[in-house]
């Protein structure tokens, strides 16, 4: 979602983006860190707070707009993408952000997310994925693992989880990335990339719910495990990971596999067939989006970006074109009177 303001003179600080409302998430919630990261990132853009609109659905994450000193709309469950579409189409010059969770975006709102992505509405979509329903006090979500024991599934959940990244790619998203709540530096970088992308930028954020699903991402988020459990995707760079940078992702036929090579030796990695990441390739993105623990490290970073016309642009271009092709009178009344008289008209004396 790129839209640099020309008047980049004012210097904004994090404080300019903080509302006067008390933040009410459970102490220790991953949402705090995401909020802080967004509030730290926005001032770097030199755009006034009123140029941002935050739209959310329902769920813990969706309280987010109340804490931002921007325009904000806390809407109804699952419908934030639809409401944000109306915002973005009406005010294309503003920066529209959607805040959603795994239940809001992928369960009740799955349909709207699909259409937001395929239309490429110019906005940033942040999906806070904690694999649980928090606000309703701990039922399993569409990203929960099979067998999840929760209040609504005391004998374990039965349904197979959805993976947000393949879902987004399959929905024709033009930008897909993943980051982690407790990795501030990484998140800042991803937020920047998402904002700069023109079109709908889909970002999955692994977020910890320390009350109902504590430690859901620890297998890859714990500092000591990160190097071996994550693979950072960088355009043009080899998919190398591991504390000693001695492992990589290679292809055997169409199947990905982990290969080992001499620590830190890029040539050896290349010889071992390690993939050089290309974030403009939908084929590679689709393949990498499926990689999952424990067999594979978790891919992090920008999976895919594609320059494609935004819905806002084509929408307004068509309006402008219609005005050119079918000119109407500048006078409001004359233009309407002409409209009323289109078709067969007869006079009665």
């Amino acid at each position: 979602m790129a839209n640099a303001s020309a008047a980049a003179t004012a210097n904004y600080t994090k404080k300019d983006f903080e509302s006067d409302q008390e933040v009410r998430w459970c102490p220790g919630c991953g949402d705090y860190s995401i909020l802080a990261n967004v509030q730290r990132f926005l001032p770097t853009l030199n755009r006034a707070p009123e140029e941002f609109v935050f739209v959310s659905g329902i769920g813990c994450s969706s309280r987010f707009p109340y804490y931002m000193n921007t325009y904000g709309f806390h809407t109804i469950h699952g419908r934030a993408p639809a409401i944000a579409t109306g915002v973005a189409l009406t005010q294309p010059d503003l920066s529209t952000w959607i805040i959603s969770g795994d239940g809001d975006a992928l369960s009740i709102g799955g349909n709207h997310l699909l259409h937001l992505l395929r239309r490429n509405v110019d906005c940033v979509f942040l999906l806070f994925n904690n694999r649980i329903y928090g606000l309703t006090k701990g039922q399993y979500s569409p990203t929960s693992e099979v067998g999840k024991v929760t209040k609504s599934t005391p004998l374990g959940s039965l349904d197979h989880p959805v993976k947000p990244l393949p879902y987004a790619l399959g929905s024709q998203a033009s930008f897909v990335a993943r980051t982690l709540d407790r990795d501030a530096k990484h998140m800042g970088k991803i937020l920047e990339a998402a904002y700069q992308h023109k079109g709908c930028s889909f970002v999955e954020i692994f977020q910890n719910c320390n009350i109902f699903n504590d430690g859901a991402w620890d297998y890859m988020a714990e500092r000591s495990l990160r190097a071996d459990a994550q693979v950072e995707l960088e355009h043009g760079k080899l998919m190398i990971f591991g504390k000693d940078r001695d492992k990589g992702i290679a292809l055997e036929g169409l199947k990905p596999k982990v290969v080992n090579f001499a620590a830190g030796d890029e040539q050896a990695a290349e010889d071992a067939g390690v993939l050089r990441y290309d974030d403009s390739s939908i084929e590679i993105a689709l393949l990498v989006s499926q990689l999952d623990a424990p067999e594979f490290p978790t891919p992090m970073g920008v999976l895919y970006r594609e320059n494609r016309a935004t819905f806002d642009d084509v929408f307004h271009a068509q309006l402008a074109d219609a005005k050119k092709r079918f000119p109407i009178s500048d006078s409001v009344d004359d233009s309407l009177n002409e409209l009323y008289r289109s078709g067969d008209v007869w006079d009665v004396e």
Binding site: A82, G86, V87
Partner: peptide, 16 residues
């Protein structure tokens, strides 16, 4: 994409 999205997009536009 559906009736709900139609009214919701309209509400977003009204807000804007």
């Amino acid at each position: 994409e559906d009736e709900i999205a139609a009214v919701c997009a309209a509400i977003g536009a009204a807000y804007s």
